[in-house]
């Protein structure tokens, strides 16, 4: 027990928690825009996975992880555009559209990777982001190594939180976006272009989820493997709900999950006689328990409901 306490207090654990939370955080911050505009962000997994491959290919062929990051955002954006077309223009059921898109992303990334490299035993590596030590701050005791020695996309993820808060709650655009998710009918009468807001929200979710994916193939890791996102998009989606659709709540939820995962790996490293299967389920169980304590969640009222513009002008 004291050993576990030691882990919890270690700088290494805090550093790892931030690292492991950051891909989730990027994707979940994106997903917030989609959810607050009234469209479920269940497609995050597919968007992330596409971003993971695109980042790898972009970085591999250009030699720069920055190109990879842009490619990842673009790939996530394209997947999001398809999702938006299905959900907003065609008013399709959002869950089925997302499920279809996620299956499609597994197939498409698998095929593309194999198309590009075939089955060879050579390891394909792409240039990845290197840690940026923030001048002065990274030398601070304790805080420095925990907070200021990360990769660029990790900083991006954390800096996004205040930006998202500002944009969603302090700008007219944010108000319009939220109104599209709360009461699209009323929003429309006040001149908000609900469909356009929803498109924008979904595409932002794709851009950020793609970037979150890039952290896996050109950030912490410098190679690609089929299905390497391993369900992170689902966790990011869960974090939004857990966070009660607020940026702060979502941020805390991703941190909780990242920390729980970092903790279970460290408990494994302690060599206690606990079967690893039980440790692997720990982050999910902890999240579930926390959720029960946190209690009632309030979704944007029109979340998941396709919106038909007043006047029904669709041909």
């Amino acid at each position: 027990m004291t050993e576990i306490l030691g882990v919890l207090l270690s700088a290494n654990f805090a550093f790892a928690s931030i690292r492991m939370a950051s891909p989730l955080l990027l994707a979940a911050m994106g997903g917030l825009f989609s959810e607050r505009a009234g469209v479920l962000s269940l497609g995050l997994e597919g968007m992330m996975l596409s971003g993971t491959l695109a980042a790898f290919l972009g970085s591999y062929y250009s030699g720069s992880p920055w190109v990879g990051l842009l490619a990842a955002a673009a790939a996530g954006g394209v997947v999001a555009l398809v999702y938006a077309a299905a959900c907003v223009t065609f008013r399709a059921n959002q869950v089925v559209a997302a499920v279809g898109l996620n299956i499609l992303a597994v197939g498409a990334t698998g095929l593309a990777f194999r198309g590009a490299f075939g089955v060879t035993h050579h390891l394909h590596r792409a240039p990845a982001f290197q840690p940026i030590n923030v001048p002065v701050l990274s030398d601070l005791p304790v805080v420095g190594p925990i907070l200021f020695r990360h990769l660029f996309p990790v900083y991006l993820a954390f800096l996004l939180v205040p930006v998202v808060i500002f944009v969603l709650y302090r700008t007219t655009w944010g108000l319009k976006l939220r109104s599209a998710g709360e009461n699209p009918l009323a929003a429309e009468t006040l001149g908000v272009k609900v469909e356009r807001m929803r498109y924008t929200g979904i595409i932002i979710s794709g851009l950020l989820a793609g970037m979150g994916g890039s952290l896996l193939s050109t950030g912490f890791i410098s190679t690609f493997m089929e299905e390497m996102t391993a369900g992170r998009g689902w966790i990011a989606f869960s974090a939004i709900i857990f966070g009660k659709w607020t940026p702060i709540g979502t941020f805390l939820a991703t941190m909780l999950f990242g920390a729980a995962d970092a903790l279970q790996l460290r408990v494994q490293a302690l060599g206690l006689a606990i079967p690893y299967q039980l440790l692997l389920l720990f982050p999910y169980l902890l999240t579930l328990c926390a959720l029960v304590l946190v209690g009632r969640t309030q979704a944007p009222a029109a979340l998941g409901t396709p919106y038909e513009r007043m006047g029904g002008s669709r041909k």
Partner: peptide
């Protein structure tokens, strides 16, 4: 086999488009 996942995903999406 991933080619089939690809087709499966497309089926779902086209189904949406068609029944929209």
């Amino acid at each position: 086999v991933v080619a089939v996942y690809f087709i499966q995903g497309l089926v779902v999406l086209f189904m949406i488009a068609g029944s929209a």
